[in-house]
Design a protein around this nucleic acid. Structure first.
Lengths: 225, 225
DNA sequence: GTTCAGCGAGAGCACTGCTCTCTGTTGAGA
DNA sequence: TCTCAACAGAGAGCAGTGCTCTCGCTGAAC
């Protein structure tokens, strides 16, 4: 049924896509701050008010770009994982691919992992795509049957509950300790990428390749890989 | 000599301060995005063009606020450290104080640890205040004579050089392994705070107190405390 | 063939950062 | 003590923004 679309519907879908594409182009150039609806419209040869037939507001357009960006990093991370072989190699591939995507798309990265844009609170739509990188890491880890870390601090009941709920959501029966450490690695991955891209490493580990390389291994140790 | 100031100079200094105070107030309310020079001027009963006698641009005003914010978190972290006693307790205090400051000043936090503002590249002025939290952590760690971690992956020459240079800058003769792990903990601290404030933990460890607590201990282990 | 929802254009509102010019004031040197 | 240059604030104005509203046109359904 959905295959048969009226000409108008097809035109609408196509134009919606074109607007997003142009917006993404400008985002990559001038960042979220500099993204202007009027400029997008101008580039597409239409008038700014016409754009509001497709997106109710600038923030809503940005939200769409956010979802796309989450999917893009997620896909990059997933595709980088060979799916078989040495778990540490797979882990390495996922980390490198995520960082590479971020460095190739700094403004899109900032859009999703930088300061949240004002009128925006993560709607349900973003939660699933936002988890894709984390899930790629989880896949590598859980398929490798990680050994539980030797030294383990006791976990509070609240944290244990959250970790177990998360394990259920991932569809894996992993011990809460492993899930918790996975969250730590996930945080570390994006913390390091953000620090590198946002200039916090200037003055310490500024060309960050060597450090990131080292960190990747340290975090593989950390999660028990 | 600097004590004797002309009335004009004193007025200028005071007004400069008032502008920054009002700007900070508005920043806390509406965020960097919503901060408007005209609104600041309006609130101070002056006209917007007059403001340009004190700050050459909006971005420059924001830069001043950035430096102040770095100093504010840095001071919070330093003051939280009792200076003596159990190193892990001190470590804990620094982490908690940093997180508490961030949660109390989310917009200021986003200004310094979120996406960088466009016209701004960290000038020399920000590098020193930006390091204060890291230095507070380093102080606790180095005064505790940390044991080197048992398992240590080999470090590349480049990374070792960076770590040693950083140790010299800190005025401490700590092994490169320890310094490198400190960078990891520093990254983790702000990575976790950013994830919490920017909504990435929604759906996993959303009320993050328990997780942050646990993470603090894990990272103390990580650095060898 | 008529009707009507959807579409683009255009004008307009309230706002922004920033510049320029004009006028009044202050303070330091002759 | 007087002069004059540096300084400060006001106001108008420019180019741009997001967003709204109204207007005709058009394609598709009835």
């Amino acid at each position: 049924m959905t295959a048969t679309k009226t000409a108008r519907e097809r035109a609408r879908a196509e134009l919606t896509r074109e607007i997003k594409d142009e917006a993404r182009r400008q985002l990559a150039e001038v960042g979220a701050h500099g993204l202007s609806l009027r400029a997008v419209a101008r580039e597409l040869g239409m008038v700014s008010s016409a754009l509001y037939r497709y997106f109710p507001s600038r923030d809503r357009l940005l939200t769409e770009l956010i979802i796309d960006a989450y999917d893009a990093v997620g896909e990059a991370a997933e595709k980088a994982d060979p799916g078989t072989g040495d778990p540490r190699t797979r882990w390495h591939a996922v980390w490198q691919a995520t960082r590479a995507w971020a460095k190739a798309h700094p403004h899109e990265y900032a859009l999703i992992y930088g300061s949240p844009i004002p009128g925006y609170q993560a709607p349900q739509d973003t939660i699933v795509p936002a988890a894709r990188v984390a899930q790629a890491m989880a896949k590598v880890l859980l398929e490798a049957d990680p050994h539980e870390p030797a030294v383990t601090a006791p976990m509070s009941a609240e944290l244990r509950g959250q970790a177990e709920a998360l394990a259920r959501a991932l569809g894996a029966h992993a011990p809460a300790e492993v899930v918790t450490r996975l969250i730590g690695a996930w945080t570390q991955l994006f913390g390091a990428i953000s620090f590198e891209l946002f200039g916090q490493y200037v003055g310490s580990v500024d060309p960050s390749d060597a450090y990131f390389e080292h960190l990747t291994g340290q975090m593989a140790d950390f999660v028990g890989l």
